Simulated scan of single mutants.
Amino acid sequence: MTGTISAAIEKRDTGPGALIEQYRDEYASLMPSHINPDQWVRMAVGAIRGDEKLMRAAATDTGVFLRELRTAARLGLEPGTEQFYLTRRRSKAHGGREIIKGIVGYQGIVELIYRAGAVSSVIVETVRAADSFQYVPGRDERPVHGVDWFGGDRGDLVGVYAYAVMKDGATSKVVVLNRAQVMQAKAKSDGAHSEYSPWNTSEEAMWLKTGARRLAKWVPTSAEYMRERLRAAVEASQGASATTEPLPPVDLADLGDEEPLEGEIVEDES
């Protein structure tokens, strides 16, 4: 009997997935109220246990891994999805071994914008050489982007644009970036020219993220917007200034550098 118990203890899961479950309550305390902690934990555990290479990278330094998940929990984003990527990157501090780096994705930024409650829709699109594109600031409310969906190759990426339609029907600031401006953002990303960088493996997604991140500077991305609306309603009803302190906005630093440190990310190997 003693041998059986000892064997069971030895086989008990003590890996990264088990640690996520162990710290479930801590993560839950960080999450926005609308997030289901159990579902979030299941998603995080599934993402790490479903990829052997991610599992090994997480096990290299579980402290770093759990810290990256804290960012996902605080932002209320789903780990292991296009909202919040769990990626591998080489670490000099760990002898060149891989660790986990969390990256807020394009869908994560868009989710934060929607969640604030100020917008009814968010449009982020890339423009290619064969497309037609017209937008004159001060004259046009929104860009007019023509795409021949059935005409074959649309050509190289030449630009990206992003804007939001607010709940009152107004259009937010329209962000338009040409190739040179996107390349400037790429240049700020450490190791962007590495063969493992998403700038090389998922280029269009990085263009979209660049546009979405610039848009996030001009539209609400947090509960601050909803709190300010409540404050205004209270003031209107009471005829006096409310004293409720606003919630802090989502810091753009949470969304990574100009583009996050993807340079050391290691792509899946066949």
Results as ranks from 00 to 15, higher is better:
10 E>Y: 12
13 D>V: 14
14 T>Q: 14
16 P>N: 03
17 G>V: 08
18 A>P: 07
24 R>M: 14
25 D>P: 06
25 D>K: 12
25 D>N: 15
25 D>E: 15
27 Y>D: 05
27 Y>G: 02
27 Y>F: 15
28 A>T: 11
31 M>V: 13
32 P>L: 12
32 P>F: 14
33 S>H: 14
37 P>N: 09
39 Q>F: 13
39 Q>S: 15
43 M>P: 03
45 V>M: 05
51 D>V: 06
52 E>W: 13
55 M>R: 09
57 A>G: 00
62 T>V: 10
64 V>T: 11
64 V>F: 10
70 R>A: 07
72 A>P: 06
73 A>I: 07
74 R>K: 15
75 L>I: 10
75 L>C: 10
76 G>W: 04
78 E>S: 14
79 P>A: 11
87 T>W: 05
88 R>K: 06
91 S>H: 08
92 K>D: 14
92 K>S: 14
92 K>F: 14
96 G>T: 11
96 G>C: 12
98 E>C: 08
103 I>G: 00
103 I>T: 05
104 V>Q: 00
104 V>S: 02
108 G>I: 06
109 I>V: 15
110 V>Q: 04
110 V>I: 14
118 A>M: 11
119 V>C: 11
120 S>F: 12
121 S>L: 11
122 V>Q: 09
125 E>M: 06
127 V>H: 03
127 V>M: 08
128 R>Q: 09
130 A>R: 07
130 A>W: 05
133 F>H: 06
140 D>Q: 04
143 P>Q: 03
144 V>E: 08
146 G>E: 08
147 V>D: 03
149 W>Y: 13
151 G>E: 06
153 D>N: 12
154 R>G: 03
155 G>F: 00
156 D>K: 00
156 D>F: 02
